[in-house]
Structures are given as C-alpha cells and as structure tokens.
Amino acid sequence: MLSSLRSCRRLLPTIALSLTLSACANLPGMGNDDPPPPPTLNEVIEEAAAEMVEANPGLERYDPIIAASFADIDDLSRSSTLGRMATEIAASALTQAGLDVREVRMRGSLFIQEQTGELMLSRQAQRLTANHGARAILVGTYAQSEQNLYMSMRLIRSSDAMVLSAASMRLPMNNDLRGMLGW
C-alpha cells in the first residue's frame, strides 16, 4: 500500500501538468486553430481612414471637409442605414486623425431627404462645398454580394474633383450588415 501511494505521488505532477496543458489548449491563441472573428464595420472603416491619412499626410491643407452619405454603387441617389453609418464612422475617424470635418446637417442649407441622407455623388458638389466653406468632400460607395460587402471611400478636392486619398474595404456579409442594408 505504501509503494502504491508513493507511485501516485510521483504521478501527480505529471497528471497536473497534463491537465494544465489540455486546459490551455482551449484558451484563445493557445494551441487553438479557430480563425479570428471577422472585423467589424467600425474596424475596417477606421483602418481605411487611417490608411488614407497615412497615404497623404498633408490632408489638413484641404480642411474643412464635409462628409456625404455613402451611396449604393448601383443607384448613386440611394443610400441606406449602412451608408449613413459608414459616413458617421469615417467622419469620426478622420476627426480623430486631426482633420477638420464639418457637420453639414447643422445648417439648413443642405437638403437631406429622409431615409437617404446627404448624397454628394449625385449633387452639385461645387455649390454645396462653397456654401459650407469646404475644401474637400468625403464620399463613398458600397456594393453588396451574397457573401461580402464592398466599400470604397475617397477624399476629393472640391475645387477640381481631384481624388486626394482613397481606400477600399471588404467585409464578410452578416445579419447586422443585411439589416442595415434593409434586406
């Protein structure tokens, strides 16, 4: 009996180590081959905005900027909750990067159609930017497929429509995105 007890005591560290390692294998990043969660709308837009600023460090020369609702690539006169939310996220990211983004909805001079937003790609950009003193416009488009959402955003100089900086994004389609698109 005493020898069995000694054998068990010698096995205890081995058993404890084995249990610890098997428990660690189930922790995130520890021997687990599960793919990381897909990026969120916020994450991809914020990363794209950072890339735009990094690609053209002199963007502050084109302040102030106004932001237009991202439009459906198949109908530039139409947006969605997703398009309006994408604009909000992008404008916030550019503001956090130090750019002067003006809130055009605070003024009565820009007509905003309910359920559409302020669509710049289908409007007279020169008139609107002059009314708001903007030297650049943030515009964007999106397209949906069965499995992905594709988005593009550009910062455009208002005086001559020259693209100052641009970024493209792709997100795997999920129920949140479908809901914002009105599916």
Score class of each variant (00 low, 15 high):
Ser79Ala: 01
Ser79Trp: 02
Thr81His: 05
Gly83Val: 07
Arg84Glu: 04
Arg84Ile: 01
Arg84Asn: 13
Arg84Gln: 08
Met85Ile: 04
Met85Tyr: 03
Met85Gln: 10
Ala86Asn: 01
Thr87His: 05
Glu88Arg: 14
Ala93Lys: 07
Ala93His: 07
Gln96Ser: 10
Leu99Tyr: 06
Asp100Ser: 09
Asp100Trp: 08
Val101Glu: 00
Val101Ser: 00
Val101His: 00
Arg102Val: 05
Glu103Phe: 10
Val104Asp: 04
Val104Leu: 09
Arg105Trp: 03
Met106Val: 06
Met106Thr: 08
Arg107Gln: 13
Arg107Gly: 12
Arg107Phe: 08
Ser109Asn: 14
Ser109Glu: 11
Leu110Gln: 10
Phe111Thr: 12
Gln113Trp: 06
Gln113Glu: 15
Gln115Trp: 01
Thr116Arg: 15
Gly117Leu: 04
Leu119Thr: 04
Met120Ile: 11
Leu121Asn: 07
Arg123Tyr: 00
Arg123Asn: 05
Ala125Glu: 00
Gln126Glu: 15
Arg127Ala: 14
Arg127Asp: 15
Arg127Gln: 14
Thr129His: 09
Thr129Asp: 00
Asn131Trp: 07
Asn131Pro: 03
Arg135Pro: 10
Ile137Cys: 04
Ile137Ser: 04
Ile137Trp: 09
Val139Leu: 02
Ala143Lys: 12
Ala143Asp: 10
Gln144Tyr: 01
Glu146His: 05
Glu146Ser: 10
Asn148Gly: 02
Met151Phe: 03
Ser152Glu: 10
Met153Pro: 02
Leu155Gly: 13
Ser159Leu: 13
Ser159Gln: 13
Asp160Gln: 10
Met162Gln: 13
Val163Pro: 02
Ser165Asp: 08
Ala166Tyr: 04
Ala167Ile: 02
Ser168Trp: 02
Met169Asn: 06
Arg170Asp: 07
Leu171Ile: 09
Pro172Lys: 15
